[in-house]
Design a protein around this nucleic acid. Structure first.
Length: 561
RNA sequence: GGCCCGUUGGUCAAGCGGCUAAGACGGCGCCCUCUCACGGCGCAAACAGGAGUUCGAUUCUCCUACGGGUCACCA
């Protein structure tokens, strides 16, 4: 068969040669060892946790090596595309500070435009490019048109599906299917001309020449040495609308855009044979691959399951609404990526997580469970190290979007709010009270009169008269000008007079000898002032509240007794 | 069912032929302490199973089991 003739028949409008295309995409002028990576999502929804995980690997690898990280939109499936997904995607990358050097961006007028010299960065705009290489493959007898309609194909694959349902003889079904598919290769130029004349749509299939019995060695940077079978499947290169499938677009784009490292989920591993074959057919040098482990969650039965879209924590936007700071999520992902991150961070407390020497070799081979406990621990550490000003800014920013009422209170008197945040902060052993911004409100609400309310009762084992006596004694003697020792001594004295010892050791040795101890006395006051049995250091709390507010609360507590 | 990948405590994981098999999270206990939080100390908790190679296997090989992925004109 005259393949060149066939190629011209199929692609009459393609006049550019592969060489001319190549000339438009010269080698990148980068230093030795610089990596070129890409984040290539489909605009089919929001950014998934697994996507962010990969994007972070992409970004770190490129920027740590002085290379290029670009964003490519894989919008080859119009069916699944969701309006506004690209905007949402860009916004998520921005809020997480995952900056890319090339790709699509939003212009001042709100439209999406390209940035960089290796575009277009939306695959739907690259049809001409794909066709040049498609034509080349046809001309070389490595690809062929298939006019079988989807309905007819459906029938061929029925055997396959039935076998699946009944779980009967897969081998036979697979053979039948394969024979039917192979039959698609048999056609004449005349038949093609006829179909074309009739305007019949066709897909372009690769002419697979591999034998799956033959295995080739392949090295994945994460998975290590693999054995992959040769490809024998005539998979689709161009869909009937002329848009490429993922496989073909992957080969052409990553070649032209000079990607050095492809980071993608391990669910792509099974299609590696296709990609190896394609790159060989095309004469392209293969990039290096990192097939990343999946993030899983534990399911109801104690097994592991892929983090699905409905799961909390699957969508990156969830973290924002739950109140996690972006840097907390970053650091959590870093701990999943390189387990030595935490150790490094402990030794380099002053450095940013962006200074961490991320290492491919340390990446995990097997999937891991998403762990909120760990995320929370990382978050508490991160938040505890912020200054009062920093945590103030971030909390205000979050509340503006998710808790307007709280936001109004926080910002009514910034100086007061910052004093609240300063409690237990800044020292060597800072408090770690909350992992998210959302947890802050119930923790500090009592500082605001508008939110203050009695959340807990005085325990019944203590006599009401004692509580009353303590509060009265406290109201009479409290002086905000006292230092901590003077303040505490007063409380001790009030307690002692009622039979509540200040000697904790003595109390422990013989609890029966006393009505209670100074901790109980403090608790009475704490409940009156904060409405709760637990709070940060009472002295500091009162200093922030101020004498007037403290006394007012003690008095109203007395009135309510 | 074919093919591919994986399997160290509940979770994340060090380990890369010889160790009492790290560490972190979570759990539990003790200490510190005006409560809480922090911090300190400690406890429980693991090499999926079986062959083989070897003087010696968590580590190398094979088999089995289990888990996951994939088998589209979706990515």
């Amino acid at each position: 068969m005259d393949f060149q003739y066939l190629a011209d028949l199929l692609f009459p409008n393609v006049t550019m040669t592969p060489e001319e295309v190549e000339a438009k995409y010269p080698e990148r002028n980068l230093p030795e060892g610089a990596k070129v990576t890409r984040f290539a999502p489909s605009p089919t929804g929001f950014v998934h946790f697994g996507g962010m995980y990969q994007a972070i690997v992409d970004e770190r690898l490129a920027h740590q090596s002085g290379g290029v990280f670009y964003l490519r939109i894989e919008d080859t499936d119009g069916q699944r595309e969701i309006a506004g997904a690209v905007d949402a995607l860009l916004k998520t990358l921005e809020t997480y500070g995952v900056s890319y050097d090339e790709g699509v961006e939003i212009a001042e007028d709100g439209t999406i435009r390209d940035k960089g010299d290796y575009g277009p960065y939306k695959q739907s705009q690259r049809a001409d490019l794909y066709h040049v290489f498609a034509k080349k493959l046809v001309a070389e007898g490595k690809a062929y048109p298939c006019f079988t309609t989807e309905e007819e194909l459906e029938e061929i694959q029925q055997a396959d599906k039935k076998a699946e349902i009944k779980n009967t003889d897969w081998h036979v079904a697979a053979e039948q299917k394969r024979a039917a598919m192979l039959a698609q290769r048999n056609f004449t130029i005349e038949e093609v001309e006829e179909h074309l004349k009739a305007g019949d749509p066709f897909v372009l299939r690769i002419l697979a020449n591999g034998d799956p019995e033959n295995k080739t060695k392949f090295t994945d940077l994460v998975k290590g040495n693999l054995e992959v079978p040769e490809n024998d499947e005539d998979f689709v290169l161009l869909k009937s609308d002329g848009i490429p499938t993922y496989h073909f677009a992957h080969a052409v784009d990553d070649h032209l855009m000079k990607t050095t490292h492809v980071i993608r989920g391990e669910d792509w591993l099974p299609s590696l044979p296709k990609h190896i074959q394609l790159f060989r057919y095309l004469g392209f040098k293969m990039p290096k691959y990192l097939h990343t482990a999946q993030i899983l969650k534990s399911d109801e039965n104690g097994g592991k399951k892929k983090l699905s879209k409905r799961d909390m924590g699957a969508k990156m936007d969830d973290y924002r609404s739950m109140g996690y700071a972006t840097e907390c999520v970053w650091e959590y992902i870093l701990t999943l990526l390189n387990s030595n991150f935490e150790e490094w961070h402990a030794q380099n407390a002053a450095k940013s997580y962006l200074d961490f020497p991320f290492n491919i070799k340390k990446m995990s081979v097997s999937g891991c469970l998403f762990d909120f406990n760990k995320l929370n621990d990382v978050s508490k550490n991160v938040l505890s190290k912020l200054t009062a000003d920093e945590i103030y800014e971030k909390t205000v920013d979050w509340a503006a979007e998710f808790d307007p009422e709280f936001h109004a209170l926080l910002t009514a008197d910034p100086a007061y709010t910052k004093k609240i945040f300063a409690i237990g902060r800044g020292g060597k052993k800072p408090r770690k009270d909350y992992a998210t911004f959302r947890e802050i409100r119930p923790f500090i609400d009592f500082f605001y009169d508008d939110l203050f309310k009695m959340k807990e009762e005085y325990p019944e084992k203590f006599a009401k008269e004692d509580v009353r006596a303590v509060l009265e004694g406290f109201a009479e003697t409290y002086n905000a000008a006292d230092d901590m020792n003077a303040w505490f001594e007063k409380i001790q004295k009030i307690g002692e007079a009622l039979g509540y010892t200040a000697d904790m050791k003595a109390y422990k040795a013989d609890p029966e000898a006393f009505k209670g101890n100074v901790a109980d006395v403090s608790m009475f006051i704490r409940i009156a002032v904060t409405g709760k049995q637990n709070s940060p250091d009472m002295y500091a709390v009162m200093q922030v509240l101020g004498e007037d507010r403290v006394l007012a609360r003690v008095k109203s507590a007395l009135a309510a007794l």
